[in-house]
Design a protein around this nucleic acid. Structure first.
Lengths: 333, 333
DNA sequence: TTGTACGCGTTATCAA
DNA sequence: TTGATAACGCGTACAA
């Protein structure tokens, strides 16, 4: 409320320097048409008064904010942090700033965030949220806000997307396993409410098994290392073998630790795979076989594409990242 | 440039509904003094035209943005992501949105971000960047922007801070170790350019050793799991014992993995401690003795304090989090 | 209850 | 090279 009074405006600078505010504006924006003499005089008074332009007013006048909206689930995952880091790196390089819209678990919440994105007048948006449907994204697009959608195949006049190949890699993993005489039955670890990335993998997992007529299992766990560890410690008191495919490193590590702490051997008795692998798959012991994707690169690519989209220079509006299976010590091979 | 034309303004809504724009404004802000009849009429045309208010113009008129600036280093660390998550959670709960200002390694860069924070007209800021000095923070304060500074003891009219007790815990760890007859010489892992948190710990490490007249070592490593692993694999080809204090889990795990992969035993031959522990200290094997702090809680507390500061209701402008030593299997005890 | 008119801090288009 | 002046989209006293 009273910041107002403290804040030096362009008008006050103009008055103090004995010029019009138009001239001050020119100096700020480093346009030509200003005498060297007046320029230095203005610059000096700017410094003396401690004047900083108001980004708000600038944005209102130019219709550009240099802000990019990023919609992500609030989940605290390493791979999301990595992606955000990639986005942020490129944004910084290109002079943009990121505004974070973190969504909760519900679709309503995600929609409310879309509203906020529109209101906030960002120059563009990167959306990575599984709760949103195609129509929701269309909505943001109808306000002509350039948007890159991650993990959803949507392309439009002002929309591009970045996708992954987890499903295909998973299918190959499964078929290769049985083709090479794998003996364990596979169990897919289902995490409630964990989005379409996992859902898609689960469907491919089931389809692949049905195709080759193999038994499979689905198990539900909470999306927490501690609880999964506890659950599997009980589980391994009874069951002594299995091949587990988990959503991400922490969950896979929980299963593996529960196994080894129960006296079982990995990978001889228990095999484990992590779908969304991060660097931690390589750090834990045994190291975990996982599907690796450079999420920072995903973020960077998305941001580069968004910038091109803003400039209306984006040619290929769809990009696909190939996850690759990295076999480590948590599986036999 | 041409978003402009597409965007429906309050004026167009007023015209379409046959009222003045003041009335529309009242409807938007849910103020009273509007007939039920006109209210519904206005609301209906708002929906029909797909009108969304411009946050920019609102902010300019009210001098409030509902944006909080967050200044953090670009480093991709788990504990920073955790903290950010805590901030974001509370911000969301209180109707704020986060604008991210990620700084690089240099002080200049951090200063440039401070500039941007001021220009961006946020309602408040949370600063967690080691590069900044006290005077730099004062600067932002002179623009009367409420600020919470993390890991720096600064208090002022519009400034509060949140700090930690890593140093004290580390000193106790060291003294206890020798008091109980610890035989290894300790080595502090110095990471170049890793900020004052680590610097402070290093000074305490040295001071504690000098106090009790013990030998100690300092080793330089790069802030990378892979390179540290390589370096220590070479190191352990020659040295067969040691007690290592590393900055964070990844580095500690690199040392520990290099040791075990070289045939050394942890903790019998090699002992390892992580200063800034995250949940991964508990996931790797052997689990790593570490100093634990709930960084999400740090973020939440900071945001709560900031909100109070904005409302001028913050009583205690300084808060201290106590790190606690969690002894795990990477050290003897 | 509704409308008028001004202010918020800039940029940008003309004249001068 | 400069300086008025009109946008930009909205909030809000004040008047009607």
């Amino acid at each position: 409320m009273d910041n107002l009074k403290d804040r030096v405006t362009i008008y006050q600078v103009a008055q103090a320097a004995g010029v019009s505010l138009a001239t001050v504006s020119r100096v700020i924006n480093k346009q030509g048409n200003v005498t060297e003499a007046t320029r230095t005089r203005v610059e000096e008074t700017i410094k003396r008064l401690g004047y900083k332009p108001s980004g708000l007013a600038q944005a209102l006048a130019t219709n550009r904010t240099t802000n990019i909206g990023v919609v992500i689930p609030s989940a605290n995952y390493v791979y999301i942090a990595n992606m955000l880091n990639g986005v942020s790196e490129v944004a910084k390089e290109k002079g943009f700033v990121l505004t974070l819209f973190t969504t909760g678990r519900s679709r309503e919440d995600a929609l409310a965030m879309i509203e906020k994105v529109i209101v906030s007048h960002v120059d563009g948006a990167i959306i990575f949220d599984d709760e949103l449907d195609e129509e929701d994204v269309e909505k943001i697009n109808s306000y002509s806000c350039p948007t890159i959608v991650i993990n959803k195949k949507i392309v439009g006049e002002r929309t591009g997307c970045v996708n992954f190949s987890y499903g295909a890699v998973l299918e190959k993993l499964i078929k290769d396993y049985y083709a090479k005489g794998g003996e364990n039955e596979m169990t897919f670890i289902h995490v409630h409410n964990s989005g379409r990335l996992l859902g898609h993998c689960e469907r491919r997992f089931i389809a692949a098994h049905q195709e080759i007529n193999k038994e499979y299992h689905i198990m539900n766990v909470d999306d927490s290392y501690a609880r999964t560890y506890t659950d599997f410690t009980q589980y391994f008191a009874i069951h002594k073998k299995g091949y587990f495919i988990a959503y991400r490193d922490s969950i896979a590590a929980a299963i593996q630790n529960a196994a080894t702490d129960s006296g079982l051997r990995v990978p001889e008795d228990i095999e484990v795979v992590s779908l969304v692998g991060t660097k931690y798959a390589n750090i834990v012991r045994p190291s975990i076989t996982s599907m690796q994707l450079d999420w920072q690169e995903v973020g960077k690519r998305s941001m580069y594409m968004l910038i091109d989209l803003i400039k209306r220079e984006l040619e290929e509006k769809s990009y696909k990242f190939d996850a690759r299976l990295v076999e480590r010590n948590s599986t036999k091979h």
